[in-house]
Design a protein around this nucleic acid. Sequence first.
DNA 1: GTGAAAGCGCTAACAT
DNA 2: ATGTTAGCGCTTTCAC
Lengths: 337, 337
Amino acid sequence: MRTGERRPTLADVAAQAGVSTALASIVMRDAPGASEATRRRVLEVADRLGYHPDSRARLLRSGRSRLLGVVFGVQHAFHGDLVTGLYEAAEKLRYELALSAVTPRRDERTAIGGLLQDRCEALLILGPQSPTSELATLASRMPVVALGRDVRHRAVDVVRNADCEGLHQAVDHLVSLGHRRIVHIDGGRTPGTAERRRGYRDAMRHHGLDAEIRVVPGGPTGEDGATATAPLLTDPPTAITVFNDLAATGVLDALRRAGLSVPGDVSVVGYDDSRLARLTYLDLTTIAQDTAAMTTLAITRAVDRIEGETVTPRELVIPPHLVIRGTTGAHLAEKPA
Amino acid sequence: MRTGERRPTLADVAAQAGVSTALASIVMRDAPGASEATRRRVLEVADRLGYHPDSRARLLRSGRSRLLGVVFGVQHAFHGDLVTGLYEAAEKLRYELALSAVTPRRDERTAIGGLLQDRCEALLILGPQSPTSELATLASRMPVVALGRDVRHRAVDVVRNADCEGLHQAVDHLVSLGHRRIVHIDGGRTPGTAERRRGYRDAMRHHGLDAEIRVVPGGPTGEDGATATAPLLTDPPTAITVFNDLAATGVLDALRRAGLSVPGDVSVVGYDDSRLARLTYLDLTTIAQDTAAMTTLAITRAVDRIEGETVTPRELVIPPHLVIRGTTGAHLAEKPA
DNA sequence: GTGAAAGCGCTAACAT
DNA sequence: ATGTTAGCGCTTTCAC
């Protein structure tokens, strides 16, 4: 029974194995300096006792925590992908992750506070929302890496997606399919909007389509997408690039309700390659962020900072890539003039 | 500059405030036994130094961690809702949460191992997948609460949704709208399938619709839903209850492709009230699990176990509720006989 | 290869 | 109200 039992400590293991705690410690840490026989004996006892080293005590003594704090939004599907990559990258460098979630009822400041108490050696913040000044204060005490969102302060490292290039790729793809009348529905006041819009404009110009440039104010939600689509229905373009996948679903819905077929009449490109985009019945062509690269770089950056390396540049901008699915198709014939 | 700086310790704060560490500790813990003046002075210094108590040392010394370990699937949107509730419930009881994620590349065993090292006093596992035997071993060492999935072992507490009742509600709703030909597409080998199927059958019998009972083998994904719908299209029922929301989206898609309107020709009910169901363009009638109740009870249960209370029953089954949206409507006329 | 002893930052028990 | 002392479980010298 559990009652009355105490968790076994290293001293218990050492005693039962007939060695000093120091030696037992060496074995448990897999450090050099113990004979094969001792090693086996100690491990056997530890296993029998169900011993797990107390990371608190261990880290307290060794002065370091080898702990990287991660602040993420528990509602953001995309953050899930990032966390997956972060675990993997951290493990390779023998660091651990301490997760702290932002929820509708738990703000970023609270989430960060928890991690500070855990003595993380660096902070990785996914889509930081705190004012730059607060992040700067933090960054004066420990390395801070912002993931997926720009933070303009010289003490904060940033790893983010090349939004601009993403929209360039979307437009390139559509142009290669024969489209010319390509509209962009932007993200309203959502972070990243400006850069994606700029990517669209640049790309259109690059293809000599200056005259066709048309940006419609939108937003990040499905309804934003649907609303923004309405005014386009009287004289629809042949293709639409949308700020993100969620808004793109609204666009798709609005188009289909209006009797237009996708991609027959109109092609649509989203952004993020979220779970949504992959749903069979949506099958949305989209721009995927390179989460593997982003997470690896973020962890590497944090660890480099911890270990005092000088690193440049402060801002790492990772190119995304196009994922072609079923919502884009060739624009075969121009309307007869 | 950060280099060369050391994090301030309680001793630093105490020294600068001109008091002993014990007194400073009292202030930081907000414990009784310090004068108002001292309190103010210490807090002021702590703030100026950017002092954060070291939870490791604190907990090491006090022998308890007041830490509840939470294992969750980072990909599961529903787990996000649960984590939100867990944070809130834990805070009320002055416990903290240690999050450990299961990802495509990090299995449940690894996730649990991390928490054991953190000296959590109990484990809350969302949708546990480990074999019962492993959970039982764990439970012999510390309180273990399984959330959202049944675990048949006397040492493991379970807090879960009343799947059976959920489908009862779905059928009741459809019957009240005049439906009689109601099909259930089940979840294949997904946990919970059997109970939801049973709920459907019971409810149909309860309404004297024994002859109409029809269960189609399905699964948890959108494609499963679409595939399961195909054989129904030759002679479609007037309503379909689907194992979960994701599969329901596949059903919706298959119906619409076949030229059937929802809810005009066929009504559809999902399960989970996931983010998906709430999307404007899906607007899916569904069964919502009561996450607030589930999380509160799970935390309460874990804490009761920690504090040695005797608690019954081992298994807490929480009734869900119907959320009526746009995919269900009245069945107006039976086909002329 | 192994053991003895000190101490990480903090809290608790006991002084004063 | 405040200070002193001991020690949580571990790692780290530094002996042997």
